[in-house]
Each structure stands twice: as C-alpha cells, then as structure tokens.
C-alpha cells in the first residue's frame, strides 16, 4: 500500500514515542543523580552533577553506606539470577504444559472440551489478593516454601490459561497434512510432534515463552509470600526493599529499576518478530 503518509501520522508517532519513552527516561536520569539533585525544583533535565555512584554501588556495595541500601544491594545479583531462573522455568512450563493442552483443543474432539477451556479462562479471573493465604498453605503442604520451584509452579499456573488459549489458536492454523505425512512415515505421535508439528509452531512457542517470562519477571506477591531471605528471593521483592518508607533514596531506587527493566527489554527486543508472528494466528482465529 504505497500512499503518502499524512503529517498527522508523524505527529501522533512523535507523541506516542514521548508517552512511551519519557517515563523511563526520567527513571534513567534519576539513576544518574545524587539524592540532593533528585530533589531539585524545577527538575534538572540534564543533571548538573551526573554520577555513576548509584550504579557503582551495585558492584562495590561499600560505596554506599545507606541505611538499607547496602543490604538490598548485596541481595540484588542473586535476586536477578533467581528471577531469571524462575522466568525461564515459567517459560518452559508454559510451553510444555500449554502445548500439550492446546494440542487437545486444536486437534482432538473430546467431551467437555468447551467446558474445560472455559474453566481455564475462569481461573484467570481470580484476584491473587483473594487467595494469598490459601495459596500459602498449599505451598507449605507441598513442602515448597522458600524454593524457586514454588514460584515457578505458582507463576506457571497463573499464566497457563492465556498460553493454552494462545497456542490452541495457533495450532489450529497448522495444516493437518503435516502430521498426516509424518504418520505415513510411521513416526510415533511424539516424533511427529517434535519433528514436524512443534517446529512449525515455533513462533507461537517463542511468544508463549516470552509472555510467561515477562509475567513472572514482574511478579511480586508470590515471591514475597513464598520466600524469605536471599536464597530464593526475586528481583521485585528486592526492589520493594529500596522503596521502604523509612529511607527512600531516589537514585538507588531508580537504578534498581533500570536493572529490572534491562533483561526483559533485551528479551523483548531480541524476540520481537517471533512474538508478533507467534501471536498472529492465535489472536485472529483463536
């Protein structure tokens, strides 16, 4: 479609870019300011004394002897690692469990399939706040408290309905001939899946994995509840430590925010194309 693009489109684009970017830009500016400069009015859009001290503090905690900063800083690397482990676990969990269930909806007809899909959907409607305590009890009975496994499981359960829906939609668009050809070649079902079906569904598997990762990356209530101490704590919990009401240090808070943004942003950017193409059929036909 080659047509002239009206100027208003560009105006809207510029506005949209500002809305999308400005808040994060401000976060970045705060991260290179001292606390005193962050309190300036009007704000210094270009910091007069830009400093990397907030970032350095994360690499050599002795740089900063703030009240709670030091402890939260020490916990940060482990927390980021934990968040990545949980995120990857959730992504894998969604892809594996989601594909299995989605295949049944896309390819097999069975009694109660509609009810089951509906049940999946309904489970997304539960407010996490409302089941926090029962969920804690479940984790305790499963003996999973204070483990990353508890977070992976809980977060997978939370994101799974969406993944199943997404994958089922995509799977439906895959031509049946593919599996039939595999069957004629005497592949087992599993072989047919692994060799033929899933590779074709790859964009959607990637999209599902990224959605799962993103959701678990931001999750705060579950790690807060299920973990204690640094061994299994994740990044949002540590960030909330920076934001305690007793000693808010804007610079450190902003810097921790920058650290939190970076991994998912890189991931999103990296897999951008797969995400869009993976959602495509799911959203249209799902």
């Amino acid at each position: 479609m080659r047509r002239k693009i009206p100027w208003i489109t560009y105006a809207f684009m510029a506005l949209a870019a500002v809305y999308l970017l400005a808040p994060v830009l401000w976060l970045f500016l705060l991260s290179i300011m001292t606390q005193a400069e962050a309190l300036s009015t009007p704000p210094h859009w270009i910091p007069e004394h830009p400093t990397l001290a907030n970032y350095m503090a994360f690499f050599s905690p002795s740089e900063r002897q703030s009240l709670m900063g030091a402890d939260a800083i020490a916990a940060m690397p482990r927390a980021i690692l934990n968040s990545v482990i949980v995120g990857v676990g959730v992504a894998l969990g969604n892809v594996v469990l989601g594909s299995l269930a989605a295949y049944s909806f896309a390819r097999l007809d069975f009694r109660g399939s509609q009810t089951l899909m509906f049940a999946y959907l309904v489970s997304r409607m539960v407010p996490a706040i409302g089941i926090m305590i029962p969920l804690y009890v479940v984790m305790q009975r499963l003996g999973l408290l204070n483990s990353l496994a508890s977070l992976i499981i809980a977060e997978t359960a939370e994101t799974l309905p969406f993944s199943i829906w997404l994958l089922a939609g995509y799977f439906r668009t895959i031509p049946r001939e593919l599996e039939e050809a595999a069957r004629i070649d005497r592949c087992t079902w599993l072989q047919a899946m692994l060799k033929v079906f899933l590779p074709v569904a790859l964009p959607c598997l990637v999209a599902t994995a990224v959605f799962g990762f993103m959701s678990s990356w931001g999750s705060f209530l579950y790690p807060l509840l299920f973990t204690a101490g640094s061994s299994a704590t994740t990044m949002p919990v540590v960030i909330s430590n920076f934001a305690t009401d007793i000693h808010t240090d804007y610079g450190l808070l902003a810097t921790s925010g920058m650290f939190a943004i970076l991994p998912p942003f890189v991931l999103a950017l990296w897999f951008q194309r797969w995400i869009v193409s993976g959602v495509t059929s799911g959203a249209v036909k799902g």
Binding site: V24, L27, M214, F265, Q272
Partner: peptide
C-alpha cells in the same frame, strides 16, 4: 522497539516510577 519499553517494566517499578 519503543512500544516494548513499558512492557519490560515490572509493575512494582511502574508504580514507583
């Protein structure tokens, strides 16, 4: 690419921001 920026923000950072 910019559209992806807000997506990358964990809710707790979003609120503080």
């Amino acid at each position: 690419a910019l559209v992806l920026v807000p997506w990358a923000i964990p809710p707790i950072v979003n609120a503080t921001l």
